[in-house]
């Protein structure tokens, strides 16, 4: 039984195929919730979830405000909302101002998940073209989270994993295939 209770994944430009690959690699009965905070172009508001779902055995949902968190479900931050993890096993959404020009803000999802799950959280930072997420990653690490960044050498756009690596000490820096393997190990 895994000691971990939550998997949080952040990504931006270049992360879309990686997330598809990760989700496709996971068993349907993955033992913890997955929080996906991914930037997408503002005009792409529909179809994104469907595209992520095609190869995934795990159900992916864009949560409603105050939705109860369940293991084995992937929660995708809805376009134009921040996705915050609350004490009491629920998700809340917010339309607060953008953080680092982003809404959803990866910083906020990481920070609030870190606050709730502490050392029971695994955070993963994928390819992306800005520095969103680095600060949230740092804060979740301070709370005890286990941190993984995609190897920047391999990332389509390395700014985001680079920023995370510069902001805090990662537990591992891995290429995507190894990230998939690592997450599957968590399931055991």
């Amino acid at each position: 039984m895994s000691k971990y209770k939550a998997l949080v994944i952040g990504g931006s430009a270049g992360s879309f195929p990686l997330v598809i690959q990760i989700l496709a690699s996971l068993p349907a009965n993955f033992p913890m919730p997955i929080f996906l905070c991914l930037h997408r172009l503002k005009h792409i508001r529909s179809g994104y979830l469907e595209a992520l779902s095609i190869k995934s055995k795990i159900t992916i949902v864009e949560p409603q405000d105050k939705q109860t968190i369940k293991p084995g479900i992937a929660y995708l931050a809805p376009s134009n909302y921040h996705m915050l993890i609350e004490l009491g096993n629920t998700i809340s959404l917010s339309t607060d101002e953008m953080v680092k020009y982003s809404r959803p803000s990866i910083d906020l999802t990481f920070e609030t998940a870190g606050y709730v799950y502490k050392d029971k959280m695994v955070g993963i930072m994928l390819s992306g073209a800005n520095t969103d997420g680095a600060e949230g990653m740092r804060k979740s690490i301070e709370r005890g989270a286990y941190a993984v960044a995609q190897n920047p050498e391999e990332a389509t756009i390395r700014t985001m994993p680079d920023a995370a690596i510069n902001a805090a000490k990662m537990d591992q820096i891995l290429p995507i295939d190894a990230i998939c393997k690592f997450i599957n190990e968590l399931a055991k």
Partner: peptide
């Protein structure tokens, strides 16, 4: 108030 938003504000 939802705690995470309140804390942040």
């Amino acid at each position: 108030y939802a705690l995470s938003s309140l804390s942040r504000r």
